[in-house]
Design a protein around this nucleic acid. Structure first.
Lengths: 237, 237
DNA sequence: CCGACATTTCGGCACCGGCCGAACCGTCCT
DNA sequence: AGGACGGTTCGGCCGGTGCCGAAATGTCGG
């Protein structure tokens, strides 16, 4: 272990990919689960396109991002759920003091409040919406958090009857907690969280707002969440 | 979010603490959960004491390490379970290609095989021992991994009857999966894993080998694990 | 009080890595 | 074909940071 530890080198180089303001900003932006073009990210991060191009090269080479080239555009997205979880976990460690700060402009403030109400966190629901769903599942005995974090048998049955296609056979964690950084509480992630989010968007329980990661619950979604999980509309506002 | 994102800065600086070979080596060494002196770490990492002193300063300032000064010694340890989990998660992402490599000397090879047999991973059991316990719990319906990762009611009862003091009331995750980097499979971590490990060491089911993080099961431990969990002695060798 | 020892502070050095603008290469549109 | 536009490559600048050895600080044991 002493002089040359390949594990330490690997750990350091992985962390090194994230240890840059600009790349960190990209990773956080990509946490919405969508694919961004290089130009969008450059504008977002406030650096020259050339600079960002080099950053993307490193992130792709390091396996954190997957790229997809379409004509003159280069789309990148997080390479997978593992990477998303890693970035989330790391971001969750950042002390709120360094993270916080009130919004500055009216436009930003409004965007912030929409995000706080409901958003996607890579491939699952977060914000007050994510918390409300998670709490409702827990309260109804469908998800147990007191001895770990897992769906109950009744929970699996609930997914079936609600028509949410749930595949627990993959290598991916069936259900895990993801710390919500606006609510500072855990919400449902993993295969179950992703299935629920996908289904909710597919059948119109909620829709994306504009081009960002914010989502809002539709009128029909409000009814469904009320009848299936007993979530009062007030918890979604 | 655009020009100056405090969250990105925080994420980058946190990652930056880990993004150095020497500091990474320290963090991995400290994953054994014990407190090391600055000198020990310097020798372990193969750098001058003065160099390491500066690294420790950064890690402590960044909240990753806690220090305890005793006379002319400076003991450091991981600041808590959250940090340990973070380092584990990050290390688990490192592709095995970069991590692996066969042992070099006979001494190291023997130490490696002892570690593969059983060791502590911060505050819980890992290696074949950790996997054997986790698998046995799962097989007997005490731990469920099919819909998440949580103890069952029978599992909580098992801890009680086995005399393992289990406190699920804290803020800490009651049970979570930790990816074992020799076995490449999840083992029990979190409050339950820590309680089990502490109890096993307290009552002599296993003992530490030398000064490292390797542990071995005692004769009495073998009997107890056999009768309480049905673990065959062959799974512990 | 003295010598041994652990740790820290301080220069100073070398290197790495992020940033930019300019030039270049493709693709798309008209 | 020509111009607009997205992305990349290149050269050069600059700041940050890891490293060391030497000297300083502090502690322990006589």
């Amino acid at each position: 272990m002493s002089i040359k530890d390949p594990r330490a080198a690997g750990l350091a180089s992985l962390a090194g990919l994230i240890a840059d303001r600009t790349r960190a900003a990209c990773l956080l932006a990509l946490l919405d689960g969508r694919a961004w073009t290089a130009g969008e990210l450059a504008r977002h991060a406030g650096v020259a396109a050339s600079t960002l191009s080099e950053h993307l090269g490193k992130l792709v080479a390091g396996g954190l991002l997957a790229e997809e080239r379409q004509g003159r555009h280069r789309y990148v997205r997080l390479a997978g759920a593992r990477v998303a979880q890693l970035v989330e976990d790391l971001a969750a460690q950042v002390p709120p003091a360094e993270a916080g700060q009130p919004a500055r402009t009216l436009r930003e403030s409004s965007a912030d409040s929409a995000m706080a109400r409901g958003r996607t966190c890579y491939d699952h629901l977060a914000g007050r919406l994510g918390i409300a769903v998670t709490d409702a599942l827990t309260l109804r005995g469908l998800l147990r958090q007191d001895t770990g974090f897992a769906l109950t048998d009744a929970g699996v049955e609930w997914f079936r009857t609600a028509g949410v296609p749930l595949d627990l056979s993959g290598r991916r964690s069936p259900a895990r907690a993801c710390l919500d950084w606006t609510e500072r509480r855990p919400h449902l992630a993993g295969a179950a969280g992703a299935a629920l989010c996908r289904h909710a968007l597919d059948v119109g329980w909620c829709v994306r707002i504009g081009s960002g990661r914010a989502v809002k619950v539709t009128a029909s979604g409000e009814r469904v969440l009320g009848s299936l999980l007993g979530i009062p509309p007030s918890a979604l506002r």
